[in-house]
Design a protein around this nucleic acid. Structure first.
Lengths: 126, 126
DNA sequence: AAGCTATATGTAGGCGGCCTACCTATGAAT
DNA sequence: ATTCATAGGTAGGCCGCCTACATATAGCTT
């Protein structure tokens, strides 16, 4: 069932999407992407889309403010670089960011286990 | 790691809790509880706590409005009963509610698979 | 008798995180 | 020339959940 989070450009994506689903998990997703190495914002959005099979298609208005927030929080460090005449802000996971990512993983494991206890059992048993 | 969602009474519960985590999943949790049979609000809160090992301790101000909303939406039907001199509003899953629950399950499975792709892999491998 | 706890339901108001909608700019393709 | 992909950004708003509070009965303790 199609369940795309959000269209990057344009209007509504799907009838069954729930934009609120990422609430409280966005930071963890971004930190996880940056674990593979430094990336700039646009590349992060693409990595999120790629690794989720296109299901996670976050708008720039969601990701860019989040990156600045995470940088202010000390979890990321950002530096300006110019590639092919275009300005990029490349973000790198800090030590604190790695620590925060570990916490996000623990939180997600616990949370998803809790919800699984309610929403998983009768899944494939008609 | 302690990760309780919320205290039913009193103030803050835990340093590491994320109250926003249930966002967009609350309806599914409630519907899932009522799948086991009709229950009143207070019993639903207790069932959520019991089946989550105490990690899900939702405040009444969260659950009661949600129940009324779900009833208005036609997913639940509520009836007043008196048990031991106390008024109870007992909610039952409607046909539409069962259908919605199935949708919530599908949504959760897809969503959790997406987040797992980012937050699960390096979990237990230091 | 008074007080507290558990049971049971509810509302008003607010907070905050993400989204919508918009803007700017360059390089490449049509 | 215009459009698309790349790249970054902000302002304002929505809405879902939470906080805090209010109400009431039953049962237990002191």
């Amino acid at each position: 069932m199609e369940y795309r989070i959000r269209r990057r450009r344009g209007y509504v994506a799907s009838l069954y999407m729930k934009p609120d689903a990422v609430r409280g998990h966005l930071d963890g997703l971004i930190l996880a992407v940056l674990e593979d190495g430094p990336r700039h914002g646009y590349a992060i959005i693409e990595a999120l889309a790629a690794r989720s099979g296109g299901r996670l298609d976050l708008p720039t208005g969601t990701v860019y403010p989040a990156l600045r927030r995470l940088e202010r929080a000390g979890l990321l460090s950002g530096t300006w670089t110019t590639v092919g005449g275009r300005e990029r802000r490349t973000y790198t996971l800090t030590r604190a960011g790695k620590h925060a990512l570990a916490g996000q993983r623990a939180d997600w494991n616990e949370f998803s286990a809790v919800v699984d206890a309610f929403l998983r059992p009768a899944e494939g048993t008609p």
